[in-house]
Design a binder for these strands. Structure first.
Lengths: 226, 226
DNA sequence: GAGCATTGGACAGTGGCACTACCCGTTATC
DNA sequence: GATAACGGGTAGTGCCACTGTCCAATGCTC
């Protein structure tokens, strides 16, 4: 098929498809002439996957590109694939250009919210993973997010350390096992790789949404004053 | 204190503080003259909170504004506050301008990724909340995220319905109870409201990060071929 | 085989967002 | 009384995800 049919089938406009082609998100079609190319079902599938990652999960175009490249490159080794995918993902649209302000003010009063660390939050994460018996790669981005969060909590006056997170970590552990349980059955390696991607990445907003529904329910039980 | 000291104490640049003042994120200082205003500790605190929500959690400026307004307006009623906060939050930077493409193509082949619904995903969420015994407001944004995710999963060929989410929902239920357990002790209503905000909103990236660490660990156990 | 729509490719433009820079008249401070 | 800092306003910046326009080269239709 050609680009107009690809557009119709996928629901993505032609200029956007061209944009994805330029950016390397979508592999080019098979060129049939100097200005003609043929696309196939795989392209339709890929486009839908792209739209899901960008639209539903909210990934940026460049993160989507990295994630898809990881899927393409390592269909065989699921562990390696997961590592690459999780490494390529920004955790929640972090990776901002970062603040301005006094970079390292000589003023001893300045406690600039501790975006790096405050009170050994990095050690805290090490303690937490040790407590859980988790073995991970040396310095995963996810660990940095956790230490950042802990540091921020403390900077804002909430008494929080790694011990506060242990119950959450246990629930996360069971969540992860649920995720992996669902990867056993799947067709060819590409299907399995895509499924892994969906179960880990696409499920993230849904899991947060479940937590919100549950929070609302329990909040009504506990706090509502009828 | 005046703006320069506020900037030093909070680590936020003066132009950015002015920007937050203009946008109503930060309440104005007490005006002492036509071009002079005084800020206090509460402003420092507020600025740090703002930076945490925007920087760590990744909220947009306008969402941050809505959330903070909810905190200010309803310090007394925690349930109402949580409802407002959860309502004001985008779930994962959704709320995109939405796609283009053929809006309602006459082509019967077009299945435009189903950003609204595909195969009764909305009913699925109703079934899920009924199964869990959750009682929530009529049509929470979180429910839409879940149905969107289910619809997308199915559109991509993954066999997924609300039953697949029940185990996750049970874990989410326990997570929410953990969250609310930590709200019992807290000082004045403002402190408690802020704490609720941090435990629900700021914790989100950290919870996803915990899941990722656990995924990496269990993936190594199951799939690594040494 | 003539004519018109479509194609692929390049490049410039758009709108939104989160700041950031500059200017100006006024006010503190030394 | 000079100099610095202040507040307030407007305009500009950089990035991102598209979107629009142009072009010569097909393809398809009659």
């Amino acid at each position: 098929m050609r680009i107009s049919e690809l557009s119709r089938r996928s629901g993505v406009s032609i200029p956007t498809i061209k944009y994805y082609l330029r950016d390397g998100l979508l592999p080019p079609g098979r060129a049939t002439a100097a200005n003609q190319a043929a696309y196939d079902e795989e392209h339709v599938r890929r486009l839908r996957l792209i739209r899901s990652l960008i639209g539903v999960r909210g990934l940026s175009v460049s993160a989507t590109k990295d994630v898809l490249a990881a899927v393409d490159a390592n269909q065989g080794d699921l562990h390696l694939l997961l590592g690459l995918v999780l490494g390529a993902l920004p955790v929640e649209r972090s990776g901002r250009p970062s603040r301005s302000g006094p970079e390292e003010g000589s003023e001893r009063d300045a406690e600039p919210v501790a975006e790096r660390d405050a009170g050994g939050a990095v050690d805290d994460v090490a303690a937490l993973t040790a407590e859980m018996g988790w073995q991970t790669s040396p310095n995963p981005p996810a660990a940095q997010v956790i230490s950042e969060t802990l540091a921020t909590m403390r900077a804002l006056g909430v008494d929080y350390d790694w011990r506060s997170l242990v119950p959450y970590a246990e629930l996360a552990d069971r969540t992860a096992q649920l995720d992996l349980d669902q990867l056993q059955d799947a067709g060819d390696p590409l299907q399995q790789a895509e499924r892994a991607l969906l179960l880990t990445v696409l499920l993230e907003p849904a899991l947060l949404a479940l937590r919100r529904l549950a929070q609302e329910h329990h909040s009504a039980l506990r706090f509502r004053n009828d």
